[in-house]
Amino acid sequence: MTIATTTLGKAAADAAATLVPSSVPLVAVPASFADVPVDSTAMVASFVGSPSAELAVVADGAVADAVAAAVEAGTPLAPVDALRPALEAASRALGSGVLETVRTEPVSKVLAEDTEVYALTAGDVPVAWFAVRVRGARVTTPTTSQVPTPRANLRMLYDVEMTLTAEIGRTRLPVRQVLELAPGAVLELDRTAGSPADVMVNGRLVARGEVVVVDEVYGIRVTEIVAGGEQVG
């Protein structure tokens, strides 16, 4: 069976292999998604960049050993934290971007036929598994008869995920006051109660809205779209 891989996927797998907890060096070898044990748990993180991707490491045994060693040393370690360095290394191989919070998911929900999978092996024995699934359109070189229009160029970005942040206010403090902060301290922000919150993408103001609660989760109801987007310093 031919296993499809990409140079970018292999680079990400090689980077992850160096930081998966193991007493011996691991080597990334192309594998099939069907080779990964279906009863295992995957540590998954979304990477938002160019390209954006879903990254996953399956390493139940390595994680259990790392957690046990940390407990024995008196420094408890969460399972997701044991594999975050490997996922961070893989994300850096993809390029600049942001790696979201690591979460756990069943292998059956993570792997599919369009996922690049690599066995992280010691010798010929798989110790862990790495998977990467690139989201969005891949860039190809157009022919002279297929030059994309501006709208087509924009459509290629539709699946790229972006991180939105909401800001209810700011303040400026001298270093001395920052160092003196303690639980219970109250900071006065630069806007009055009830003022709209700013919705920003990569530090650029795109909208304003009011803070709401939806099923016990905070949300923003957009009340104004900011034309052109203002850069927030």
Results as ranks from 00 to 15, higher is better:
residue 106 P to A: 14
residue 157 L to E: 00
residue 75 T to C: 07
residue 191 R to Y: 03
residue 37 P to G: 05
residue 167 E to L: 03
residue 168 I to Q: 05
residue 18 T to N: 02
residue 197 A to Y: 01
residue 180 E to R: 15
residue 194 G to N: 08
residue 22 S to H: 00
residue 106 P to K: 15
residue 60 D to V: 11
residue 118 Y to C: 01
residue 130 F to V: 01
residue 170 R to T: 07
residue 115 T to W: 11
residue 41 T to V: 13
residue 100 E to I: 03
residue 41 T to R: 11
residue 86 A to D: 06
residue 135 R to A: 07
residue 101 T to W: 07
residue 49 G to R: 06
residue 228 G to W: 10
residue 233 G to A: 15
residue 57 V to A: 05
residue 146 Q to N: 14
residue 196 P to F: 03
residue 76 P to C: 12
residue 97 G to C: 03
residue 183 P to W: 04
residue 183 P to R: 04
residue 55 L to D: 05
residue 40 S to Q: 09
residue 48 V to N: 09
residue 142 P to R: 15
residue 51 P to T: 14
residue 142 P to Y: 12
residue 215 D to V: 05
residue 98 V to L: 12
residue 133 R to T: 08
residue 88 E to Y: 06
residue 90 A to N: 04
residue 166 A to Y: 01
residue 233 G to K: 12
residue 148 P to W: 08
residue 223 T to Q: 06
residue 67 V to K: 02
residue 180 E to S: 13
residue 36 V to I: 11
residue 228 G to I: 15
residue 67 V to T: 11
residue 204 R to Q: 14
residue 85 P to H: 03
residue 30 P to L: 06
residue 101 T to P: 11
residue 135 R to W: 05
residue 84 R to Y: 05
residue 114 D to A: 14
residue 166 A to G: 12
residue 14 D to E: 05
residue 155 R to K: 09
residue 194 G to Y: 04
residue 111 L to K: 13
residue 104 T to Q: 13
residue 164 L to T: 10
residue 115 T to V: 15
residue 232 V to W: 07
residue 127 V to R: 02
residue 152 A to P: 01
residue 180 E to G: 12
residue 59 A to E: 14
residue 80 V to H: 12
residue 107 V to H: 04
residue 96 S to V: 13
residue 27 V to S: 12
residue 175 V to K: 04
